[in-house]
Amino acid sequence: MSFVHAKCSVDERRELWSSLLADKPSFLPWCIGGDFNVIVAPHEKRGGRPFAITEGVEFLSFMEEAGVFDVGFSGPNFTWSNNRRSRARISKRLDRFLVNVACLDLSYNISVLHLARHPSDHSPLKLSFVAQSDTSRIHFDF
């Protein structure tokens, strides 16, 4: 498991992507979760300036090079808000979990639930690993 809290600037995020790639396990399961401070598609944002595809290009390149993909989620669409009112409000999906293919070989169904944000500006994420042949749950709250 790797946990991230990415910086807001593109240059500092590049440093994070490089560090994660340097620590990438060769054949072991790998799960990366946290605040990536970037979105990859227009539907991951509401309010503020329109989405620009260049925002997520480097993140998508990192994901491809790292061999990880987004687990998806259930719950509210956005995990962060600037907590302003009306037209000044901006909401984004900045927090997520990424896994590599080796995680899928563990015979677990992996799911992510976005929990209520209040009172923070970020939603906590609940990561669950459920054995495919078992109904017992192992979960990790972040």
Rank of each mutant, 00 (worst) to 15 (best):
F36S: 11
R93T: 10
N100A: 00
A22Y: 09
A116D: 12
E12N: 14
S133Y: 11
A116M: 01
F142I: 08
W80Q: 06
R49L: 11
G67T: 06
H139Q: 09
P42C: 02
F59G: 00
R89G: 01
F27D: 15
R49D: 07
D70S: 06
A41E: 14
L20S: 06
P50W: 03
H118Y: 10
F73E: 05
N100E: 01
P42M: 02
E65R: 13
S61N: 13
S123P: 02
F59A: 00
G47T: 02
I90W: 09
W30R: 08
K92G: 02
F51K: 04
T54K: 11
V112R: 01
W80E: 01
L28E: 15
E15S: 14
H139P: 00
G56R: 10
R85I: 05
L21E: 15
M1S: 10
N37R: 02
L106T: 14
A52Y: 01
D11M: 14
Q132I: 13
S111E: 09
A88C: 04
R85W: 04
S111V: 02
M63Y: 01
F27T: 15
V57K: 14
A66K: 04
G34E: 06
V101I: 07
P25R: 00
N82L: 05
G72L: 05
S133V: 01
G75T: 09
S86F: 13
A22D: 14
E55D: 08
A88H: 01
S19E: 15
R13I: 02
D121G: 07
E12D: 15
T54W: 05
S111H: 06
D35A: 08
